[in-house]
Every structure is written in structure tokens, then in C-alpha cells.
């Protein structure tokens, strides 16, 4: 059983890697797949707060927007390379995260949720109204696509050529998104199993007990917030250089809600679950977008399904649909044993 699951995983990975090279590939499918991967990054980033630390963040999309606009504006005005923009956008997102987090993370959970929500709405208002900077509701069109300039390598090798590769169509973005998902996934799984991750989980389970064991609650929460918002900004930077157009409408509260729904569906704190949750909800969204108008309903009503999913999951499967997957990301045998014992005590 375990071996079968393992080979299925590799098979899926191989299929995902090979798909864009197949003759029957479809641009629309590729586009949706890239979108899924963007949301996978977002879901993994958001997961840190409600999942690992037990803090409800309702304003995640604000940082996604900050990342996207950082990338978009730097591209438009300074024609900066994507590879330089990524760290800048991530830092900018994390900076805003710390600025917002430092005064608010001392708050009780519900208040924190509300402050993050208010912040993301303020971000949208800012993007809509500061026309001198963002062109307001019109958005920023004509952002240059990503290009990979390795002429320096050519000079290093003594070749007198311009080695520059411009991203065209969905295929290069598809592979770049894959790399991005893989990197974030790797970092997340390693972090979860590290001292940092254990501190977060301790804060989630019982802040008071964690503090009495010497966990600096405030510092670890701020780190969590900075990492989470940085990842959100990363996804935003990719989005800006992929869709080549950004507008304030793309960063409304619904997006935060959608990402939260993915995390909840996959199980709070479950990294792999977040990946599956993103794939399911984006695919479902695409299906409903086509199916609903045929039933004579506006396409936005697909959120009805999302709302229902959240309520039902919280009621009947509070640990998400993929609890088995969750256990496997933790590799420390000590923690596994501890968890098993806690679970046993709870059922007893």
C-alpha cells in the first residue's frame, strides 16, 4: 500500500513534468495548472499562520497584492530583471508583514484576524485610489514577461553571444512555477520539522505552556508572519510577470477567503493538504465557472460551494480531508511518538 502510494506520487510528478512537452498539450489546461501552482504557493504561505501558529489571517491577499505591485512597478519603471525583483518583492512583503505584525501579534486571536482583514482592505483602497502610483482601477497593463539573461555565463566561457531567453507562452512559466512550488514546499517541510516549526506548533497547541517552556511567543509569531507574508509576495511577483497585467480587483477579500478555504480543505497545518486543496478548489472553480452560467446563475455564485465546503469541513472533518498525508510530513520520531500519545489520551 505504502509502496503503491509512493509510485503513484512519482508517476504523477513524471506526468506533470512531461505534460507541456506532449503534442496534445492544451494552452488552457496549462494556464489552469500554472494558476493552481500559484495558489499552491499562496496556500503554503498562508498555512503557516492558521495552520502552524493557530492565528487566523484574513488579509493574506494584501501581501500577495503588495508583491504583485512591487514587481509590476519595478518592471514598468526600472525594467528590472525578474530574478532581482523576486528577493525585493519578498523582502517588501515581509517588511509590511513585520510592520503590521509587530504591533498586532500581541492581540487575542479574533482581533488579529480583524486587523489583518482591515489591513488588506486598506491595501486595496490604496491601490485603487493612489492613481499617481498605481493607475488606480485601470491597473497596470503591459508588464514585460520574464526573461533569463545568462550572457555573463557566455562571457565567462569566452563565447561572444547574447544568451538571453525570453519567456513566451505558458510552458516556461509552467516549469518556473513548478520550481517555485518545489522550493517553497522544501523550505516548508524542513521548517516544520525544525526548532522554528516546533515552536510554532507549541504556540498553536497551548501558548501558555509554550511560553513557560521558554518559547518567545512574540518573536516566533513575528517570524511566522514575516515568512508567511514573504511567500505571499513571492506568489504576487510571479503573478505580475506571468499575467502581465495587475489591477486592484485581483486582490480583494475573496482571494484571501479562497486561499483560506484551500488550507482548511487540506487540513490546517498540513502542507501537502494545502497543495491538494489548491488543486481541487481551482479545478472546481474552473468547472463551476463554465457550469453555473449554463444553469442561468452568475459565475460568482461558485463561492456558495466554497462557503459550504468550509462550514462542512469545520463541522465534520476539522483536521481536513487528508489527515493521513499530514502525519507523513513530520519526520522526527520523537514528535511522532508524542503526537500518537497525545492522540491516544484524547480518545481515552
Amino acid at each position: 500500500m505504502r509502496g503503491a502510494a509512493q509510485s503513484l506520487k512519482y508517476l504523477l510528478l513524471a506526468a506533470a513534468l512531461a505534460y507541456p512537452l506532449m503534442p496534445f498539450r492544451d494552452v488552457y489546461v496549462l494556464h489552469v495548472l500554472v494558476l493552481i501552482m500559484v495558489y499552491m504557493v499562496l496556500a503554503m504561505g498562508l498555512n503557516i499562520l492558521p495552520g502552524f501558529c493557530g492565528l487566523l489571517d484574513l488579509g493574506f491577499v494584501g501581501f500577495y497584492g503588495i508583491g504583485a505591485y512591487t514587481a509590476g512597478l519595478l518592471t514598468i519603471h526600472y525594467n528590472m530583471s525578474f530574478w532581482l525583483i523576486v528577493p525585493l518583492a519578498v523582502l517588501n512583503g515581509a517588511l509590511f508583514g513585520v510592520l503590521l505584525g509587530a504591533p498586532t501579534l500581541r492581540l487575542v486571536g479574533d482581533y488579529f484576524a480583524i486587523v489583518t482583514f482591515g489591513f488588506s482592505e486598506l491595501v486595496v483602497l490604496f491601490l485603487t485610489n493612489e492613481i499617481w502610483l498605481t493607475r488606480g482601477p485601470l491597473g497596470i497593463p503591459g508588464i514585460a514577461p520574464i526573461s533569463l539573461d545568462v550572457t555573463w555565463l557566455a562571457t565567462l566561457l569566452g563565447v561572444d553571444e547574447r544568451w538571453r531567453y525570453a519567456f513566451r507562452g505558458e510552458v516556461p512559466y509552467y516549469y518556473l512555477a513548478m520550481v517555485m512550488v518545489a522550493l517553497v514546499f522544501l523550505v516548508m517541510t524542513r521548517v516544520e520539522d525544525s526548532r522554528l516549526g516546533r515552536a510554532w506548533l507549541a504556540i498553536r497547541e497551548d501558548p501558555m505552556a509554550a511560553a513557560s517552556c521558554g518559547v518567545n511567543l512574540f518573536a516566533y509569531k513575528v517570524i511566522a508572519f514575516a515568512v508567511s507574508t514573504g511567500i505571499g509576495a513571492l506568489a504576487g511577483a510571479f503573478l505580475a510577470r506571468w499575467t502581465l497585467f495587475i489591477s486592484p480587483d485581483m486582490f480583494k477579500f475573496w482571494e484571501s477567503f479562497l486561499v483560506l478555504c484551500m488550507v482548511v480543505l487540506g487540513g490546517l497545518g498540513n502542507i501537502r493538504g494545502a497543495l491538494v486543496g489548491s488543486a481541487i478548489l481551482i479545478a472546481l472553480g474552473e468547472v463551476l465557472r463554465v457550469a453555473l452560467p449554463k444553469l442561468g446563475l452568475p459565475a460568482e455564485t461558485r463561492f456558495l460551494a466554497y462557503g459550504l465546503i468550509m462550514v462542512v469541513i469545520m463541522r465534520f472533518r476539522p483536521h481536513g480531508l487528508f489527515t493521513q498525508v499530514a502525519e507523513s510530513t513530520m519526520q522526527s520520531s520523537l514528535i511522532k511518538d508524542l503526537r500518537a500519545r497525545i492522540a491516544a489520551r484524547r480518545t481515552a
Partner: peptide, 19 residues
């Protein structure tokens, strides 16, 4: 956290039901 998420879910649900 569970109750808060449920509350948001219900809000979205009712809004779309009205739609």
C-alpha cells in the same frame, strides 16, 4: 479558529444564496 472559519463560510454561503 474553527468557529471563526465557519462564521466566514456561512457569511459567504448566505451572500451567494441571496445572489
Amino acid at each position: 479558529l474553527a468557529a471563526l472559519i465557519t462564521a466566514i463560510g456561512m457569511s459567504i454561503f448566505l451572500q451567494n444564496l441571496a445572489m
